[in-house]
């Protein structure tokens, strides 16, 4: 799993590459939380274009980061999910709760 966070035009974007499952979610959570707590971004986007697999552990990861951002006064955006990942996100209602878009 690789995580690359860029800050541009008032939006912090985390580009994730690899697979999100229960095993990898722990490390991703730790890295994203460290950044969010330190930087307190108003808008934090997770770019899923480089994710080749995601199960419901990714749903917990996304909802947890959304809660943390709300506590910090920010909000989460989900961008560029692959079709097979969209199915899991839709099952969890993330498309409605947070919105998903391609950029």
């Amino acid at each position: 799993m690789k995580i690359n966070i860029k800050y541009e035009n008032d939006v912090a974007t985390a580009f994730l590459t690899g697979e999100i499952d229960h095993h990898s979610a722990k490390e991703i959570r730790s890295q994203l939380d460290s950044y969010i707590i330190a930087a307190q971004p108003e808008v934090f986007a997770i770019d899923l274009s480089g994710i080749t697999f995601m199960d419901s552990s990714g749903v917990g990861l996304i909802l947890g980061r959304s809660r943390l951002l709300q506590e910090c006064g920010g909000r989460l955006e989900i961008i560029n999910p692959q079709p097979y990942i969209k199915r899991v996100l839709r099952l969890a209602g993330i498309d409605v709760k947070l919105g998903m878009r391609n950029v």
């Binding site: 979610a25 959570r29 199960d55 419901s56 552990s57 749903v59 917990g60 990861l61 909802l63 947890g64 199915r87 899991v88 099952l91 969890a92």
Partner: peptide, 15 residues
């Protein structure tokens, strides 16, 4: 506490 979404069986049923 481990941020489990509670969707494991739902995913299995759907997929």
């Amino acid at each position: 506490e481990e941020e489990r979404s509670g969707l494991g069986f739902s995913v299995m049923q759907s997929f």
